[in-house]
């Protein structure tokens, strides 16, 4: 009974692993994931790679979204041209 509750398949484990990369997994999900990882080598590898990917992207400060005001400026310029085209 208890075993059934704590077991999960690989597909679910992957999803929980993905969610936990964004801090969106619940505590219970994380416990189940840890348990799954004890005996599942494939998921263990996936989790390791996934964590690495998260760290890599976090460490990359060059990757920034376009600043809002610049976006608005480009947008208003673009809208003007678009309007000209539709005339």
């Amino acid at each position: 009974m208890m075993m059934n509750k704590i077991m999960m398949d690989c597909e679910k484990a992957h999803t929980v692993c993905d969610k936990s990369q964004y801090k969106e997994a619940t505590v219970w999900e994380k416990i189940k994931l840890k348990f799954h990882l004890i005996f599942c080598k494939i998921c263990k590898k996936y989790t390791a790679n996934n964590t690495k990917l998260t760290k890599l992207i976090k460490s990359n400060s060059v990757f920034t979204p376009l600043p809002k005001d610049a976006k608005e400026k480009i947008k208003s310029n673009f809208k003007k041209e678009l309007a000209k085209l539709n005339d």
Binding site: V62, L66, K71, I74, F78
Partner: peptide, 19 residues
């Protein structure tokens, strides 16, 4: 459909060119 271009692609293009 150029109406959505800026919303959809500007961040991506920005990062592409900034790198």
């Amino acid at each position: 459909n150029p109406n959505n271009w800026i919303d959809l692609y500007s961040d991506y293009l920005f990062n592409y060119s900034i790198s």
